[in-house]
Design a protein around this nucleic acid. Structure first.
Length: 1158
RNA sequence: AGUCUCGUAGCUCAGUUGGUUAGAGCGCUACACUGAUAAUGUAGAGGUCCGCAGUUCGAAUCUGCGCGGGACUACCA
């Protein structure tokens, strides 16, 4: 930054604040002096603060939101360094995963289908490896420029062999603990492509498409037994559950029905619309009108009112409510003429009462062998938004189904194979289903044609459809079958959006697939328990979002069918009877040796743990069978969740390093990582070491544009971090982000806010420093701790700001320790702006520039120096550059502020009384200035007297100590204090609701009225006696002084202003003497401005000649010395004519003045 | 759809265990101040505290039901 002073000694002074340039200079200095390295190496090895860096994906470009999250990471690390901790920060790169694969595919113009044909897996992975690190330079550049201190020279990289080897070792530990198992889960699956799909893939554009499917409401016949008998009128009654499905092909695999426990269900007598037979159906109340004609909504309400409340139903003698064709009310007349509109509501029950009721299997092609089945269970996912409020459960074809079935020990049927065809067991004498595709879209045209002829023939032969017109899908056939068997209530076409496979364009199905899992449910309790020991910022993320997630934990599916990632180190024999989990390269080599000896493979070097190399390895089982690696890669979240271990190549080496660095004291990432990195870190910490992985975690919110929209390239509202830093500086950006709102809130990023921060905070501080440097250099003052003036010897204002500073140090340290950066930043801002700049410096300006060096001056320099020095430390975590700049300016030749040790608050320097009276002074000044303003009397015009009513001696004593500040600030000669006894003060009283409300409660209104009715005598009485007995409707209350607020309302004859309990009155009478003095000050002001215009030096002596009017003459005569002293004039001469002069506006007149340096 | 979260002045945000006149900064308007001067002060205008209902003597604050924004998870009969 451009220096103003040419001489190198003293405190540097600058021409203009230029933060971006300042930062570049500081960066160079840091690098030349290895400051970051020193900030670690100079701290003791045995006092560590452990930080984990969440690895960003180097595959994408950094954005402004990275500046946000990294500011948070950086600032707490810097803060802990100030406190004397050693804080190592190892950078990391997340390098695996689908985005990398997709990036490469886009780049070279292939699709997944081309892998293995147009390009080998080896070539493909090579490209991924090259491509993923392409932006590292840009990342490193941003890291440097934003002042984020992290070790970019020794990062952990998730694709490196050592890293992967660590992952293998950890997986093996899990395997040995029995926490790694093979199981199956319901996943999106494309039969046509023969592969499972991830949610990423399903969420690609165009995957969800609107299709028309056949939906069916099937009827499940209730088995009458003890549980269900209450649903039956007689033994012959045919009671059915209605359940809706958009995938009738899953009905043969139905094994349960799910109801909502709080949902109300109706038992309704009606007639089958297909067979005309009388049936009784169970359907949700809310959906009743969807299937049965109800005249109008009033009827629905009536229905409800007649059958409710539930508690009354049991012992109600009332007739059941019957509507027939909406009119006739007679059970006997329930007849066949109008099937849909004939109904009779008999009963209403909650879902919970129906739990456990059994029903007959709908389509008994096969029986489940893995559990009980065909029961009513309760599911929290059941709604009444559509369907019947009863959900058909096919555990193999829906994830909710699977989960709820497992919870209720319901058996399952998987009557569809991996090609998407019904298995042979679905063998129906009439309807050709076995071996056929469940979705019409899977058939080729030729197959469809062939199948159509077959269907036509068989339906004709069986006298079902004489002449079938078109192909029937599996859904159609099943619906037809149900219809014929009186198991169908209704069917219709249904439009909905359904996911399709992006490779084949065919609809996907949900299908149980083999996958490898980490059994997180086995350690669920421990995960929850240990989570409670983690300090989450904000707390609700830990308790709410994360806590809930843990409560509803499912096992972690590790398997991914991908190419570029960490291979699962598990080899299995062909019959799956034997399994080996490999935990290291060494172990793998031993196994390869064995295998080579057996002859299953050629000897080979292990150089890369990725596909396809590991897949070429065939091991030998203990019983001598060949073993192949399972094809899966693992979830990339395992990569990053394992970084506490793998970054050190632990557990294969570096045990002591690991132990020193686990668990983390602190981590921070975006809130979107709650179920990502925060979760996987936690799971692995608990599963492997029964420990939390981190003790404190800050999850920051999203960064939005200034209108609250998400930043996106499409909207063109993306903020470039490099441009922002270049233009406004990193410090201002960091400070703005931290001070604007708590980091866990979403933040609207607005450039004008950034400019405000520069102007108001950095500008003020820069100015304050500049002011200090200017005068300290004139006096050639240097800080010398040995010669310090004791605090007691310093004036009131100095002790005040020092006291304030102690509070600030204490508060800010506490805020940082609580991970509350916003509170810290705001406290610092407030101190700098309100206390230091706008009160301390403003009131003290004279002390700095007036006269020779003195002890008082020294005290002022010392005080301001100490404040600036402490502020630079306190702000250094958030604004590392500016604080460095100020610190090094203040302490010539010193080391970095980031190597310093944080000041501690000295409680002895705290003086609450002093702070209180200074606040009285500030508030008084503000009131008096507002009075002056109201009367249009400028501050330059002295006034004679202020009147302040005081309630007690202490308050008066407090005022007296700060009297001089008030008087000089508002330019008044004297303060007079009056007590109540004077009787001139008119007061008003009102109840203190907070105090009184606690005691009188509901009588508050009456008490309020009584208090408001107080006379002046009543008020003096309570002030004198400290209490007052109040009579209210025969009861008496003791009212104490603390129960009321008494304020001065008016002082007759004075100009009065009040704020809370503080009242000031101002005497605005102007005497001649006052007027003359005012005129003198006016003249001084004008001449001072002239000096400045003429670029006189601050210390230049001048001579003055003036053609004065009478008003000015008088002032010059009576206040000659004062004027001369102020304007540094050796002589002031009143003359009649002037050859050369300047014109000055003086009290609405123009005067001629000549000034010159002598 | 579920979970979490946010909603206070034109903008960005405070607002303690509920307490009666809801605050700050910026911006706007007006007026001052002036050897910190591309700084500063004072005043004014500006609010259905997202809505409705409830609890209470009293609700921005507590409860319920909605509305709107956002995130995550899920995509389901």
């Amino acid at each position: 930054m451009k220096r103003k002073d040419s001489n190198a000694s003293g405190f540097p002074e600058y021409a203009m604040m230029d933060l971006p340039t300042m930062e570049k200079e500081i960066l160079t200095w840091w690098e030349d002096n290895n400051v970051f390295e020193k900030s670690i190496s100079e701290r003791p090895d045995d006092k560590r603060f452990v930080f984990f860096e969440g690895p960003p994906s180097a595959n994408g470009l950094p954005g402004i939101h990275h500046v946000m999250s990294r500011t948070i990471k950086d600032l707490f690390c810097r803060f802990k360094t100030l406190q004397g901790y050693r804080v190592e920060r190892k950078a990391g790169w997340d390098t695996h995963g689908l985005p990398v694969e997709l990036g490469v595919e886009k780049k070279i113009g292939i699709t997944k289908a081309d892998i293995g044909t147009k390009i080998t897996v080896a070539e493909y992975n090579k490209l991924c490896r090259e491509d993923v690190m392409k932006f590292t330079d840009i990342w490193n550049d941003l890291t440097r420029k934003m002042g984020y201190w992290v070790d970019m020279e020794h990062p952990y990289i998730t694709y490196e062999n050592n890293y992967i080897e660590s992952l293998w070792a950890l997986l093996k530990k899990l395997f040995d603990k029995g926490l790694l198992y093979e199981g199956y889960t319901i996943q999106p699956y494309s039969p046509a492509a023969g592969t499972g799909l991830s949610s990423h893939e399903l969420n690609q554009p165009g995957c969800y498409r609107d299709v028309k499917d056949v939906s069916a409401v099937a009827m499940f016949k209730v088995v009458k037994n003890e549980n269900s008998s209450f649903l039956f009128d007689n033994d012959g009654e045919d009671v059915r559950f209605l359940a809706w499905t958009t995938t009738p092909w899953t009905l043969p695999s139905n094994t349960a029905l799910a109801l909502g426990s709080e949902i109300e269900y109706l038992k309704v007598k009606t007639l089958s619309r297909y067979t005309g037979k009388p049936i009784t159906v169970i359907v949700a109340y809310d959906l009743f009108s969807k299937y049965f004609l109800v005249a109008d909504s009033n009827r629905t309400e009536l229905l409800k009112s007649k059958v409710f409340p539930l508690s009354q139903i049991a012992n109600s003698d009332e007739e059941p409510l019957i509507y027939l064709n909406n009119e006739v009310k007679d059970t006997a007349k329930l007849i066949t003429s109008d099937k849909v509109n004939s109904w009779l509501v008999e009963k209403i029950v909650k879902g919970a009462e129906l739990e456990g009721i059994r029903y007959e299997q709908l389509l008994p092609y096969a029986q489940p062998t893995d559990g009980d089945a065909f029961r009513v269970i309760l599911g929290d996912f059941v709604t009444t938004t559509d369907g019947t409020g009863i959900v058909h459960i096919a555990p193999s074809f829906g994830s909710d189904d699977f989960r709820v079935a497992k919870q209720n020990s319901i058996g399952s049927l998987t009557l569809v194979d991996k090609q998407g065809k019904f298995v042979d067991e679905v063998n129906d004498p009439v309807f050709p289903l076995d071996g056929r595709f469940v979705k019409e879209a899977y058939f080729t045209d030729a197959e469809k044609e062939q199948e159509f002829h077959l269907q036509k023939e068989i339906l004709r032969v069986n006298n079902i459809i004489a002449d079938l017109k078109s192909f029937m899908s599996a859904d159609d056939l099943i619906v037809l079958k149900l219809k014929l068997e009186n198991k169908l209530f209704k069917t219709e076409k249904y439009d909905h959006s359904y996911p399709h496979c992006w490779r084949t364009d065919k609809p996907i199905i949900y299908y149980p697939l083999d996958s490898w899992f980490i059994k997180t449910t086995a350690i669920k309790e421990r995960l929850i328990e240990l989570n409670k020991t983690i300090n989450w910022k904000p707390a609700h993320t830990g308790e709410g979002r994360f806590g809930q997630w843990l409560e509803n934990l499912v096992d972690w599916n590790l398997s991914r069918s991908r190419y570029w990632g960490t291979p699962l180190p598990i080899w299995v024999s062909e019959d799956y009877a034997e399994t080996k989990c490999i935990g290291s390269i060494a172990e793998l080599k031993v196994e390869i040796e064995k295998s080579v000896k057996t002859g299953y493979m050629q000897s080979m070097e292990v150089t890369d743990l990725h596909k396809p190399f590991v897949d070429e390895i065939v091991l030998v089982s203990d019983t001598g069978k060949p073993m192949k690696r399972v094809a899966d890669l693992i979830d990339v979240w395992f990569d990053s969740g394992a970084m506490p271990y793998a970054q050190w190549h632990y557990p294969l080496e570096n045990e002591s390093t690991f132990k020193q660095n686990f668990p983390a004291d602190f981590i921070a990432e975006g809130v979107d990582q709650t179920r990502g990195w925060f979760f996987t870190l936690h799971v692995l910490g608990v599963a492997l070491f029964d420990s939390v992985a981190y003790k404190n975690v800050v999850s920051n919110g999203l960064l939005l544009d200034k209108n609250g929209n998400k930043m996106s390239k499409r909207l063109g509202n993306v903020i470039d971090p490099f441009e922002t830093i270049e233009k406004y500086s990193a410090d201002a950006t960091r400070w703005y982000m931290m001070r604007n709102s708590d980091p866990w809130e979403n933040m609207k990023f607005d450039m004008t806010g950034l400019q405000d921060v520069i102007r108001s905070h950095f500008g003020t501080l820069y100015n304050t420093y500049g002011f200090f440097a200017l005068y300290a250099n004139i006096d050639n003052w240097k800080y010398d701790a040995a010669k310090k003036i004791s605090n007691e010897a310093k004036p009131e204002l100095d002790r005040w700001i020092i006291s304030k500073l102690q509070t600030l140090v204490k508060d800010v340290t506490g805020f940082y320790e609580d991970y509350e950066p916003t509170k810290a930043a705001r406290a610092i801002e407030k101190f700098v702006d309100e206390d230091l700049s706008n009160w301390y410096v403003r009131l003290n300006r004279r002390r700095f520039w007036k006269g020779e060096m003195s002890e008082d001056k020294q005290a002022a320099y010392e005080t301001l120096f100490e404040c600036l020095n402490a502020v630079s430390q306190l702000m250094s975590p958030i604004a590392p550059f500016f604080s460095e700049w100020m610190h090094r300016n203040l302490n010539e030749g010193s080391a970095s502020v980031h190597l310093s040790y944080l000041v501690e608050a000295d409680e002895r320097l705290l003086d609450k009384d002093l702070e209180e009276r200074m606040e009285l002074a500030q508030r008084s000044c503000s009131l008096i200035l507002s009075l002056r303003k109201k009367e249009k009397i400028k501050v330059r015009q002295p006034l004679s007297k202020i009147l302040i009513p005081v309630v007690n001696a202490k308050t008066q004593a407090q005022f007296e100590k700060v009297e001089s500040y008030i008087l000089s600030e508002v330019n008044v000669k004297a303060i007079e204090y009056i007590s109540d006894a004077s009787g001139v003060v008119k007061k008003k009283i009102k109840p203190n609701f907070k105090e009184l409300g606690k005691r009188v409660g509901s009588k508050m209104k009456a008490v309020q009225n009584a208090v408001l009715a107080f006379t002046a005598d009543d008020i003096s009485q309570i002030e004198r006696d400290q209490k007052y007995v109040l009579n209210l409707e025969g009861e008496s209350f003791e009212l104490f002084l603390a129960d009321v607020d008494i304020q001065t309302e008016d002082i007759p004859g004075w100009l009065v202003a009040s704020e809370g309990a503080l009242t000031v009155a101002l005497d605005v009478t102007l005497t001649d003497a006052l007027r003359q003095e005012g005129n003198a000050r006016e003249f001084v002001n004008k001449v001072q401005n002239l000096r400045k215009d003429k670029d006189f030096k601050v210390l230049d002596r001048i001579k003055v000649k003036v053609i004065a009017n009478d008003m000015l003459k008088e002032a010059i005569v009576n206040f000659h010395d004062y004027i001369a002293n102020e304007i540094l004039a050796k002589e002031i001469e009143v003359v009649d004519t002037l050859d050369s002069f300047d014109e000055l506006e003086y009290n609405e007149e123009t005067i001629k003045v000549y000034v010159a340096v002598v």
